[in-house]
């Protein structure tokens, strides 16, 4: 798929993020927007998944370890055809299936329930282990937040994956540099991220996580790396695509009001038109 087509999908995902969180009056737009290019590339270029056969045992797996970015994940799944895009308007509503954090029992296309930070990555390791055991060639992808890697469990999982040489596993760190209490370097710095993973026997790749050429090259490199798992440290901009959300920590977990919603959607509409 050409980059321009991916950009058009990403624009729709961004609209989905703003629409769903606006109607939910809550949710996490900032980290969903920073990871939009990653969601787009994974679901529309990289992964073998089929909305008509969501439980295909040979499919690639994805775990959103930073589960609070469900708005971006759900928008990608909806555009891929797992459920209607209009359902996003009922995110987080009572008696509706789109839970605030990914729920594998309720949401079509979700491979693992997640949301408690640090836990999804272990599940991804288990999936990679199962794939190796069954001699299947599916790959497993997990997206983690950069603040999330402050959780000790991430490093337990990384130690195991490195020790077991799980080369069917790709971790992606959404390095938007912000967590709820501020810049990750100020709160409790996980830097240097690449050197840490290197020490845990990972192949490490640093990229601009909002650039399709760099994402494409990194995913290819990860697929071709044998004998060790790969981590892609994707430098991103939190809130990307909505001017007043960009690099603003206040938009980590807050929905737009009526006025902000109109401005955000107007900006995204114009950005979308520019891609036509």
């Amino acid at each position: 798929m050409e980059n321009i087509e991916l950009q058009r999908i990403a624009n729709k995902i961004r609209k989905g993020i703003i629409i769903s969180t606006f109607h939910a009056k809550s949710g996490h737009p900032g980290g969903s927007l920073s990871a939009t290019e990653i969601f787009t590339y994974l679901f529309f270029e990289e992964m073998k998944v089929d909305p008509k056969n969501p439980h295909d045992p040979d499919r690639d797996r994805f775990v959103l370890s930073k589960g609070h970015c469900a708005p971006g994940y759900y928008a990608a799944l909806a555009l891929k055809g797992f459920f209607p895009f209009s359902d996003l308007e009922q995110l987080r509503h009572t008696d509706f299936y789109l839970q605030g954090h990914p729920d594998m029992k309720m949401v079509p296309g979700v491979d693992m329930s997640s949301g408690s930070l640090g836990q999804g990555v272990s599940a991804a390791v288990g999936m990679a282990l199962a794939g190796r055991l069954d001699k299947k060639d599916y790959r497993v992808y997990a997206l983690l937040g950069d603040g999330e890697i402050e959780e000790g469990q991430v490093w337990e999982a990384a130690m195991f994956a490195g020790a077991r040489k799980l080369d069917n596993l790709t971790l992606i760190i959404d390095n938007n540099n912000l967590q709820i209490d501020g810049a990750i370097g100020d709160v409790c710095s996980p830097y240097p991220i690449d050197k840490k993973f290197e020490a845990f026997n990972f192949h490490t790749i640093n990229i601009d996580g909002n650039d399709y050429d760099e994402i494409r090259a990194a995913m290819k490199e990860a697929r071709e790396t044998k004998g060790m798992p790969t981590v892609i440290i994707a430098k991103t901009i939190k809130g990307l695509g909505v001017s007043f959300m960009e690099n603003e920590v206040g938009w980590h977990g807050k929905a737009t009001n009526e006025e902000e919603y109109k401005i955000a959607m107007d900006e995204l509409e114009k950005a979308g038109e520019a891609l036509e």
Partner: peptide, 15 residues
Amino acid sequence: ANMAGISAGLASCGK
């Protein structure tokens, strides 16, 4: 903690 998560991942794949 990791053991519990790995078990979950394995179970999700039919183990």
